[in-house]
Each structure stands twice: as C-alpha cells, then as structure tokens.
Write a protein that binds this DNA or RNA. Structure first.
Lengths: 349, 349
DNA sequence: TTGTAGGCGTTATCAG
DNA sequence: CTGATAACGCCTACAA
C-alpha cells in the first residue's frame, strides 16, 4: 500500500485532518505544524490520492473531450492536434487533466459520454465540433451538465457557452478578396453539411456574392469529402460547365490539398488557370504546391479559450453563458491571383 | 445527490452488497433477485460511480498517454491523430478510458506523469515516443509502474514492453529500392536525433549503402526540422556539392513535404531531377505534388497494439515483457524514378 | 489552532 | 444465496 495521509499524520504526530488542512493550505494552521507536516510528507514521499480526494470532494478536476466519430476526416486533419494543444495548455494552467472519448460509432461515443458524466469521471465536457443535430449535446443540456462547444451551436445559440470564429464573416471576407481580384465566377467546395462550420462558411460566401450583385449559381457549389478518388470527378464536372469558375473557395486546407492534387493531375495550373482560397491555415498550407492562401482561424486559441471557459464555468457558481469569438486573418500566399492579369493566359472554353 | 447503490437497494428491498453483486454479475445470486435489482436500477436510472468504485478497487480503468512536449513537430504531425485512433479503439474494446498528459515543457510533462501515477489517476501509461534519454521512462521503471512504449526503447530493450515497426529494416529496404532504381548518390534527411526512430532509420540507410559497397558520405546526411525557412539553405547546400545526391531518403512525410516545397521553389523537379522517398505514409503523402513514395508503417496498428498490450499487462498478474513488431510496406507512388532512364534528362553538374 | 467522527459510493470479507 | 460491516483515502463539520 502507498503512503496515506495517516502515515504522514503519525510521523508528524498530528491528526489526519491536520495533514489534510496543510495540503489544502488552510490558513488557520500554525506555521510550526505546517512545517512539521511538510517535513513528514517529504520524508515519506507522500502524494495525495486523487481518487479519494475526488470522492470526498465530488469533483475530479478532469475535463472530458468529445471528438466526432473517428471515421470523419476530422481525425486526419491537423486541426485536431492543434486544438488539442490549446485545450491542453488551458487545462494545464489550472491543473485540470484531459480525458478523451473513445468510440468509433456515434452510438459508442454517446455511450462513452454517458459513462463519463454519470460515472462522475469528469467535471465538465468540451465538444470539439458542432453539428446540426447532436445527441450528445442534447443529453448534456438535459442533464444540465457543464459543457462548452468549440464551434457555433446550431440552435439556442444564446443558451450555450461556446468558442468559435466568426466563420460567416471570415468566409464573406475571403470571398470579397477573390472578388477584389476580379473574379466573378467563384465556386465553393464544402465538406459535410451536418457541421455548422460548413453552413456558416457557405452562407458567408453567398452573402458576399449577393452584395456584389452576382447571382449565385447552384452548379458552383459542391459538397463532398473530396479527398482521393471522388475529387476528380466532381472537379471535372465543375470545370466542364459552360462558364467554369475562375476561383474556388474551399472549406478546409486538407480538402484544398485534394483539390490541388486533382487539378495537377488534370494539368490545370493554380493560380494561373484557377485560384484557390481555403480555411484553417494548418502547417502544410504553406508547404503545398503552390502554397495556399488560407484564412487563419487561430486553432490553438480556440482550444485554449474553450478550456478556460469551461474551467470558469466549473469554478464560478453562476458564471453566465458566454460566446467567445476568436479572430481570424486572411493569409495571402500564392494560390490566388488577379483575374485582370490572368485573363490572357486563362483556359479558353 | 445522484442515485446510489443504496437507493437501489432500498427500492429492491435488498442489501447494498447484493446490488453490488448484481452489477459485478456475481454468479451466486438468484435470478429472481437479479431481476428485481435490475428493475430497480432501471426505474431509478442508476449509474455506478466510477470514482467510488476506483477507490474501493484500487483500479481506475484509465490509461495515461504521454506525448512529447508540444513544441515538437510531432504534435503537428498526422502521425499523432492516427496513433490516437488506434489507442482509442484498443482501449474502448475493453472499456478503458484515455487520459492525456498536458504540459508544455519536459518538466511540466514529467510533473504531470507523476501526478497521474502517484495520484492513482491511471492504471498504466503509454509513451507515444521513444527517446535516447527520458526522465519519464526512467521514473516509470523505477516505480515498476505498468507501461508500454510506442517505438523502440533506447536501452534495455528486452526489459521493456514496446510496440514498434522494424524501422531499421524498413529503412534498409527503402534504400535498397532506390539503389535498385540505379541511384548511387543517396542523401538522408532526418529529424531529431534524440528520437530512437531517427537513429534506427539512419542506421538502416547506412547499412544498405554498405551492403551495396557504397561508401557513406557525411555530407549527404542532414538533420534538421526542415520545415519552412531552415530547409532551403540545407537543401541548396546539399545540391551544391560537387556530386549532389540523385535521391533522398527523408525520415518523415511532413518533412518530405517541406523538402518538396523547397525544391519546387528552386525549380528542381521531383522525380526528374531528384527522387524522394519518405516514411509514415500519412494521408497527405498521396495528396502532395508529386505524390510521395512512402513507407507505410501502419500507424493505427501501432496505437491499437499498444493499448492492447498495456491492458494485457494490467490484467495478467505476470504477463511477460513483450515486443510487438508491426509490419511496414513500401507504397510506390511517383516521387521516385529510375536513374537509368532519368540520366538523360538529369541535372547536369 | 487542532482533534474526532462521520461520510463520499463501492467492494470485499465474513457470517449466517 | 444474502446481509452486516469494515475498508479504500480524503474532507469537513463539530467539538475541544
């Protein structure tokens, strides 16, 4: 058996409760006994047992993280490690530990969350995604269990604490940038429409076009995973239109990489033949060929703020519902070029 | 307060211990009471409290994961999410939860591990990396705390349970492949030499050259992070040698992407001017331009086997020390080409 | 300022 | 087959 509070008490010749108070740094305890107890702890190499403490306290100092199911591209996406780093930093600052949901299917994940919550394994939960319909989120709300969402909730926005970018605005700005370069035919390639971020980005895209008095064209909008095989077909479909787009807004860097790959195979040059603008600005956006112009959404900060918000929620009895918006920034590289110049070398239809 | 075992006991009109037995599926309990208790549990919506159970059991059913410090490229690398998925699947199968170390610096990480271990927050630990000198590993060994390493331990290989590829062999085979294509001047670009995987890969590389009676050339070997700025200089240095290499073995796909990027900027074509072969075969290896020939190391399996091994270690009193080698496989794409053909179009010196 | 005692929710031992 | 009862290690009134 390991060293317990009692062993320390015995050695220091005090009561266990006194040792407990020293650990908690209780102010009303004499410096003398405090020293004595600390000496005893050092001598024995005492470490408090978190489990016992949790049971007595009804609090674990553990945050549960819920990831979307692992078949999602999400998992392959560098977004995930980066946001995790932010979460980790935020948690670490206040000595919280992180526990992650395991489970392949949505049902397994849900079951895992129930275990975390009802099994009292965690004090609060962070959802690393936001979907239009989510069993987990509904469950947490019903039980009034403390949680924070990374991404904008699909409904009841003002009743849920969340951390997000202004993806609507970001997408609008990005599209405006392409417009300012002289593009008039702009396509949008998005991911899964169940994710709110996809919806926000497409809405911002459409809004920008509307403001520029360009009528939106359904044929210019594609949704698919767009990595590997699927991509080629969708892209050629897009480029075989009578008026193919001269620029594309792509919902995510990884997807953009897939698009880039397909275009290369088709001998279409970026940005000479077509411009590409994407989101997230993960590490390899600048390592791609050509380097991608991308909207930096400060992924790390999303995670960091999410941890902090949840911890605030857990510490303050009645912390208000909050929304935290992390700023974004367009990073211009070389995948977008001005239509005014490019028109000379453009692909003839 | 939540529903406890006592509430269930009262409703079912049995003793708490009986309820506990039902939960544990104790064989010597009548089917009748079993039903009665289960009905009561359902009626009340009872869920066992893991914390209390852990305290009584001296076992948490939580596995601690230790990542290298977050400044490492490791974190940006798709390796991480993939191995995590494997770990997660393995853990989930046996209803173990995963907790990850937080902490930026090596010291913070070490402190975190001590908390996990001495604070009895986890039953065992998995190290997601292997370094030449590692405080955490030494600590775990000293305390005889159950753990598994992903990667080959630097020393005492036969006393530590680990899951790894045969990186030595993989690298040798990869190099042989380049040799078989007619390359004789082959360079190596590796990462941090503190990681055992880097060492193994370089040794395999050198061995292949030796077997082919090619004397190794120190100028052909470079170690650096090789993403962004640093890369260009190192690469041009390499290519400005009197006899520049015609092929490169790169320790990692992400690094290879950096190299590719630098080469593109320098107007050097791959594979026409120089061939590139890398390791890991992460998702974007096939999305790069050109798609990378890469050694698939089955990252998912590394994680999966690691979880399973640790769980075995935790269940069987005296499970033997094991080494598990996950097979690798060279995936040929287009970043390597035959020197015999290419010589005509090759870069003249 | 410190000690005593009961409780946090389970499991396990021992009777019966 | 089932019921008391004592752990597990810590916290926190309440008492002194």
């Amino acid at each position: 058996m390991a060293i317990t509070i009692k062993d320390v008490a015995k050695l220091a010749d005090v009561a266990p409760s006194t040792v407990s108070r020293v650990i908690a740094n209780n102010p009303r305890i004499s410096d003398k006994t405090k020293e004595k107890v600390k000496a005893a702890m050092d001598e024995l190499g005492y470490h408090p047992n978190f489990i016992a403490r949790s049971l007595a306290n009804q609090s674990t100092r553990v945050i549960g993280l819920v990831l979307p199911n692992s078949t999602d591209v999400f998992f392959q996406n560098p977004f995930f490690p980066t946001v995790l780093r932010g979460l980790s930093d935020g948690a670490n600052e206040r000595q919280y530990a992180l526990q992650i949901s395991t489970g392949k299917t949505d049902d397994e994940i849900f079951e895992g969350v129930v275990q975390m919550v009802q099994g009292r394994r965690v004090d609060g939960v962070i959802l690393l995604y936001s979907r239009t319909e989510d069993k987990v989120l509904n469950y947490l709300r019903e039980r009034k269990f403390p949680f924070v969402v990374i991404g904008k909730p699909f409904k009841d926005v003002d009743q849920i604490t969340y951390v997000d970018n202004d993806n609507y605005k970001a997408s609008k700005e990005a599209t405006n940038y392409l417009l300012s370069l002289g593009h008039k035919q702009i396509g949008f390639i998005g991911g899964d429409l169940n994710f709110v971020v996809t919806i926000e980005r497409i809405l911002g895209f459409e809004k920008a076009l509307r403001e520029a008095n360009i009528e939106s064209n359904d044929e210019y909008i594609i949704h698919s995973e767009f990595l590997r095989e699927g991509g080629q077909e969708a892209i050629s479909q897009l480029l075989n239109l009578k008026n193919p787009p001269t620029a594309l807004v792509v919902a995510d860097d990884l997807m953009a990489l897939g698009v880039l790959n397909t275009l290369t195979e088709m001998k279409i040059s970026v940005p000479e033949d077509i411009s590409i603008l994407s989101f997230n600005n993960v590490l390899f956006s600048e390592l791609s060929n050509p380097p991608l112009t991308s909207v930096d959404i400060n992924i790390f900060e999303l995670g960091y703020q999410a941890s902090r918000s949840l911890i605030r929620l857990l510490s303050n009895e009645n912390e208000p519902v909050r929304r935290i918006i992390v700023p974004h920034k367009l990073i211009k590289r070389v995948s977008c070029s001005s239509r005014i110049i490019d028109i000379k070398t453009a692909h003839p239809n």
